[in-house]
Amino acid sequence: MNQASKSPLGGDRTTARAFFVSDRLNTSGLERGDVLATTPLAFRVNANGTAILFRYGVVVLIGLNALEEEEFLGSLQSRLTRPFARRDEEIATIELAPDREEQIPPGGPICLQSLAPERLILIGEALAKSVVLARHEREVASVFDMTEPFARELAQSGRMRGGRGAILKQIGNALSVRHRVSGPVEVSEKPDILWDKPQLERLYARLEDEYELKERAESLNRKLAVIAETAQVLTDIIDTRRSLRLELIIVFLILFEVLITVYQLAISRHG
């Protein structure tokens, strides 16, 4: 077993864990002498660990125990923009199998022929995208849960209860999720490392299939389109209500003016 396959892991199996910790992660100034890559930033941690940091708020740690993970995440607190109260996690088991084809058996570990840094970075890329998708899937589902009663009432009665404030809140929730999900994570983009290591494209394709990255991204985009349409419908409802209110006010003013005119004519005739 050569040095590349021994490092950064100390055994035949180890754990990779991705943490989605914040909206943004500032990696400036974290470059070190033992850096493994710069996009994403990857470097060694302790004796057998590796950290891979993504600017969109994901940290992937490989070969660290739970205490080391918490200590490392704690050291990044000052670099987090809008940290999450609840962080999402994605976990994978990596197995060194130099005599086997690199594959991911159903329900099994990720089998690698070597534990070279570029292979670990590819795993980090897949885990990071998967954990971001998981959070966004949950956020999108929550927007659907909030807007579903509006849609059901519209379908049943043709009307929608709730004041302007309630509708605006739903629009805000929908647009906020759409903005976050359409942010800096491009699931369909090829990792930068594949431009230098095209021989690893098959491994990454298997990781994409295992975590269903493309399928989940397409499903999320379809749901985001529905959210955008929902926000537009709610906005149109507000505009319609406002237009109807203005029309009623104008009608009442005209009626009031007619009544005043009739009254004045009656007074002048009696005079």
Rank of each mutant, 00 (worst) to 15 (best):
R32E: 06
G162P: 11
D192V: 12
G74Y: 05
E201L: 01
L115W: 01
L246C: 01
A4K: 11
L67Y: 03
G107D: 11
D196G: 07
R159W: 12
A51T: 00
Q232F: 11
Q199G: 12
S243N: 04
P105S: 01
F72V: 07
D192T: 04
I267W: 08
E69G: 00
A16F: 13
R13W: 13
P83S: 02
V262N: 03
R24E: 02
A18W: 11
M1L: 13
V262M: 13
Q103A: 13
N48I: 00
G172Q: 04
I123F: 00
L96P: 09
R86E: 13
I227R: 00
L244F: 07
P149N: 05
K190A: 05
I121L: 02
R87Y: 01
E95F: 07
D196I: 00
A126P: 10
T235Y: 13
L175N: 14
G63Y: 03
G162V: 13
E153G: 10
N46L: 02
I167N: 03
A225R: 13
A151K: 13
L80E: 09
H270T: 02
E102I: 08
R269M: 09
A4M: 13
V35K: 15
D236M: 01
E95W: 01
E68Y: 05
L234C: 12
T50N: 08
G10K: 04
K6T: 06
L67P: 00
R138D: 09
Y263M: 04
L265S: 03
L53W: 05
L224R: 07
S157F: 10
V258Q: 14
I52M: 10
N173E: 15
T38R: 12
T230M: 10
A47Y: 05
T15M: 08
M146I: 00
V59I: 07
I238E: 02
L248M: 08
R55L: 03
A141T: 02
A217K: 07
V177Y: 04
G271H: 12
Q170W: 05
R55P: 02
L127K: 08
S188K: 10
E71H: 02
L168C: 11
T93G: 00
R44T: 12
E139G: 01
Y263W: 15
P98E: 11
L255H: 07
E257T: 12
R269W: 14
D209G: 11
I227G: 15
Q3G: 00
A266G: 14
P40N: 08
A231L: 03
